[in-house]
Design a binder for these strands. Structure first.
Lengths: 402, 402
DNA sequence: CGACTTATCTCTGCCTTGAAGATAAATATC
DNA sequence: GATATTTATCTTCAAGGCAGAGATAAGTCG
């Protein structure tokens, strides 16, 4: 619990203006003032400071309509600053530079044999340095994501089973190498933030991102902020019991754990059992068959989507989100979100009669957008506290300018 | 999204001081300043205004120790204001007056034959009026709770299955009758707020209140604020699938719905099947047997506690709370929370190895505290925005006083 | 070309905080 | 017992923030 100060007001008002501009696009100062309930004088002063800092700009005015002085829209300036996202996957590190609107400016995918933290970090830092200032954007910071249990407040990766990391000080180590602010979070929460800022959940304050792939997990945004739990461990779905189907026996002893029923491994296992793929093929080959039109493969994936639907219904009943975004193999490359939606609605209709349901949408990003999502971690921070990450803003704040 | 103002700063600082005093008990101004990061001058000014308004008072100073001027502790003044809570149950309306520390000042239980909204409201309003100002406390407002789907933002009860209400404008109707601010919320969320302010979860910012009784449901407090979901429907557990045991077939078609396996009805059914109680007896009679030491009854309730434990594990994995508070028939009159704890830890240990678990505690309130919990709805609002509910505070704010 | 309309900018007043100094009330020391 | 010391609390003052009123700018309409 911390007491509030005057500077908090200014900080929050900067943030409110930036978020409103992100949400609504170019907006005249007058409209901005009435949208956020601020005096026009304050809007002028604050947008002035934001413009001098390079965060907003006056957009091209549309054909002036009606009487009076024409509106001059103010918009996010995406040409000054950028943020970098780094995603650490198995044998794959994806580094992206995105602008303040979330648009991809540059990408630098890399494959790595090792899973050791040190060499991976050195490689990532090299990619980051290569990107800094080489695309005309001043980089404000780096967001890093990976799977497993990631603590965003301490910057530590407690456990990352796929890469075998334990208590890895990811944020600190990367900061030492690149000299920029570094924020870390889990892959699923990064995806949720990306959806929140410039994806399917743009402007939605209560939603769940449900990721189903080689790992399963949920990312929560509650009341407009990411919810991470008391130990940054929120979002675990591995052992969520599902109804209607059972899979292999889980380490916990149950045969109805969501991960064991709907995860990629089980899908691949069932495809093998059905003779669809060979022993050394993986779930991606099932996707390929489905894309090619193989009916058995399609049925298998639809089946899985049905299970995801019942789990979605459980989450909707429990957490009452406005929206559930489905990511991972259920939404791409073959989009089975309609199956998820039907299965979820079926279950909810039986119990609730259709009241208080949530929209269910496919992720706005393809499977290769994990780097962009990592950047969203940093972008989120910039929009929440602009002064903390844009030095030029505090410098020009009190300057009356011209 | 609304912009911030200077008055928001003052409001929040009032709130921060009140909450800190509630959390830590009587505190000297200096200690208060360092605890919340405020200058001592501001603490003096704000506590002065709070004291003139009757919200805080200078407490009796303890034996002065050490050198220097002795500290003068400031404490919540519980002798000026109170809030009233009204809980609408089946055939039972419980009206309570509590002071600012949550202590019960007066209680007025009433039994009612009807379940119709109008006569129940008239009866409740009579009880409320009887309490107002008759105990030396100025009543700041009324909190009302009931089961079912209650929308706290609109004040509507969408559906209340036990009483048969549909779209009942509870807040507005009660406000018209008593002329005080009225806030409503669901019974489970009210219990969660009570635990948060003066119960087992005092000072805990991320926790879940899990209620298992004739109805089941969860109340969430995330990041220090109640989370109600997009349509005020969060907390539904009825159809949460549970592992290890199945019950009667639910309306949704599954036999593993939490409500059907762990609810009071199933417990009573199993007790009947075992010959423990007769057809016209209920779950309370099973409790009575267990209290009397009947081993079969105890085993039955322990069994149910085990199921609650697995559901608790699911919630902990999904939402990573710091604490889970167990309320309803599992914690009273026979406390089986230890069984819940063991069952939950068992399941979590298999999957997580004991990391990031949550404490599990019994509710601090007996089964008859629903009225107090309803009052907590109003108390929460007063602590969050004192100026909105205490007119004397705004009146004396700028007064330099003496 | 002048009147009108609307958007934006400038200026003033009020409010709130933080910091420093003044005051108060106890103990420690001679 | 008188004085110094220590710590808590109160008072004063300057800086910084927003709202609202008025001034200015940049169009359209007749």
């Amino acid at each position: 619990m911390r007491s509030a100060q005057l500077s908090d007001v200014r900080q929050q008002n900067y943030s409110t203006i930036m978020r409103e501009l992100m949400r609504s696009g170019p907006t005249a100062r007058t409209d901005l003032a009435s949208a956020i309930g601020m005096s026009t004088g304050s809007v002028t002063r604050l947008t002035g400071a934001l413009a001098r800092a390079g965060l907003v700009k006056e957009a091209a005015e549309p054909a002036p309509r009606g009487m009076g002085r024409p509106k001059v829209p103010v918009a996010i300036d995406e040409s000054t600053y950028g943020v970098i996202g780094v995603h650490f996957g198995l044998h794959r590190i994806n580094t992206c530079l995105i602008d303040l609107r979330g648009q991809l400016v540059a990408e630098l995918p890399a494959t790595e044999r090792t899973t050791n933290l040190k060499p991976l970090l050195r490689g990532a830092a090299r990619s980051v340095r290569k990107m800094i200032d080489s695309h005309g954007l001043t980089v404000l910071g780096v967001g890093a994501s990976t799977g497993g249990w990631v603590d965003s407040s301490s910057g530590q990766v407690h456990t990352q089973p796929v890469l075998g990391w334990q208590e890895a000080p990811l944020a600190e180590a990367l900061h030492d190498l690149v000299g920029l602010p570094v924020l870390v979070d889990s892959q699923v929460r990064a995806l949720a933030l990306a959806e929140h800022w410039f994806g399917a959940a743009a402007g939605v304050d209560n939603f769940i991102h449900l990721f189903v792939g080689n790992v399963v997990g949920a990312g929560f945004v509650f009341n407009g902020s990411p919810y991470r739990g008391a130990h940054s461990a929120a979002g675990g779905l591995d052992h969520l019991p599902v109804t209607g189907r059972s899979g292999q026996t889980c380490v916990c002893g149950s045969r109805r754990c969501f991960a064991m029923v709907a995860g990629d491994l089980e899908t691949a296992r069932r495809a093998r059992a059905a003779g669809l793929i060979t022993d050394d093929q993986e779930v991606y080959d099932v996707f390929a068959l489905a894309v090619a039109g193989n009916p058995q493969a399609r049925r298998l994936l639809q089946d899985r989507a049905g299970v995801v639907g019942t789990a979605t219904a459980t989450l909707i009943e429990l957490l009452d989100p406005e929206l559930v975004v489905i990511g991972g193999g259920v939404s791409a490359p073959v989009d089975h979100v309609a199956v998820v939606r039907d299965a979820a609605q079926d279950r909810l209709a039986a119990s609730r009669g259709g009241d208080a349901t949530a929209r269910i949408l496919a992720s706005a990003f393809g499977p290769h957008a994990l780097g962009i999502a990592a950047g969203a971690i940093m972008l989120d921070a910039v929009y929440r506290s602009p002064e903390a990450f844009v030095p030029a803003l505090t410098a020009t704040a009190s300057d009356p300018g011209h």
